[in-house]
Amino acid sequence: MTKENIAAFICQWIAKQKGLNTDDIDLDENFFQAGWVDSLGMFRLIFELEGEFNCTLDQSALFCSAYPSVNMLADQVFLQLNRCTQ
C-alpha cells in the first residue's frame, strides 16, 4: 500500500460524495474550507478508510491536523498503517 493509493481512495470518496471529478480536487487544499468534507463526513471517511485498508486508525492523530488535506490525511493513514504492520 502506497501513500498515493490512499490519497486516490480519499479523492475518489470525496468526488463520489460531492459529485465532483477527481481532477477537481486539489490534494493539498484544506478539504474543510473547500467544503468537500464536514466533521460528520470526516467520521464517515475514516470509517471507510478503516474498512478499505482493514485497519484500526488512531483517531486522535487524524482529528488534530491543523490543515487537513487529502495529502495530509493520506500521510497520516500511511504512517499509521506502516506502524501497524511493522
Partner: peptide, 14 residues
C-alpha cells in the same frame, strides 16, 4: 466554531 475548527467537538470530547 464548527466552521473554523471542524473537529473541535471530538477534540473537546477527547
Amino acid at each position: 466554531a464548527q466552521q473554523q475548527f471542524p473537529m473541535l467537538g471530538i477534540q473537546l470530547r477527547d
